[in-house]
């Protein structure tokens, strides 16, 4: 069972990871990073298959996938 780590300071809140995750593991949180962007949370971690879609389609190199 894989999981991801989001470097919230790099995130710009574009929500692509939320859109692209086939398992809907990622949802937008209501927290802001220091630049004022709302960043996502890795919620349903059991569903994560480590497919790396979120990390590859993140424009800001903010996601690391562990397996």
């Amino acid at each position: 069972m894989a999981e991801i780590e989001i470097d919230v300071e790099r995130c710009k809140g574009c929500t692509y990871c939320v859109i692209q995750c086939p398992q809907d593991c990622i949802v937008m949180s209501d927290k802001f990073n220091s630049k004022g962007y709302i960043y996502p949370d890795f919620k349903n971690s059991e569903e994560c298959t480590g497919c790396t879609a979120c990390a590859r389609l993140c424009p800001d190199f903010a996601i690391t996938v562990y397996g």
């Binding site: 780590e5 710009k12 424009p59 690391t64 996938v65 397996g67």
Partner: peptide, 24 residues
């Protein structure tokens, strides 16, 4: 991370520069 190793973060030939681009 809790005994798991990195499957993917970024390509070898990519720098980890902070993004200059607009969100999205």
């Amino acid at each position: 991370k809790a005994g798991k190793k990195v499957i993917y973060h970024k390509p070898e030939s990519a720098f980890e520069t902070s993004s200059l681009f607009c969100a999205g």
